[in-house]
């Protein structure tokens, strides 16, 4: 790896870390919303949401499914540019 590649690699590593922090914060917000709703409006969690599920089940399952989707998106975005181009 020459110096140009090293610089690119360092830049990419930094971008990856920033991306990870941003995605963590985003997920934390969704998680905090779930905890807040459970604590302050538990009765609202019994209301109907989507596909016949109540808010509690839909939100809870959603948190797990979103975690898997986030993980897959992160993996795609974390591939080194050269790898993404298939070089």
């Amino acid at each position: 790896m020459d110096s140009q590649d090293t610089i690119l690699n360092d830049e990419f590593e930094k971008r990856k870390v920033v991306l990870g922090v941003k995605m963590t914060l985003l997920y934390s917000l969704v998680y905090a919303g779930f905890v807040a709703l459970s604590v302050f409006k538990p009765t609202a969690m019994a209301g109907r949401a989507v596909l016949g599920l109540n808010v509690a089940v839909a939100y809870g399952l959603g948190l797990i499914i979103i975690a898997v989707i986030f993980a897959l998106i992160y993996n795609i975005l974390c591939r080194f540019p050269a790898e993404q181009k298939g070089e």
Partner: peptide
């Protein structure tokens, strides 16, 4: 499960 997000990212 949610804790794994911190572990990954």
């Amino acid at each position: 499960l949610a804790g794994w997000i911190v572990a990954l990212f």
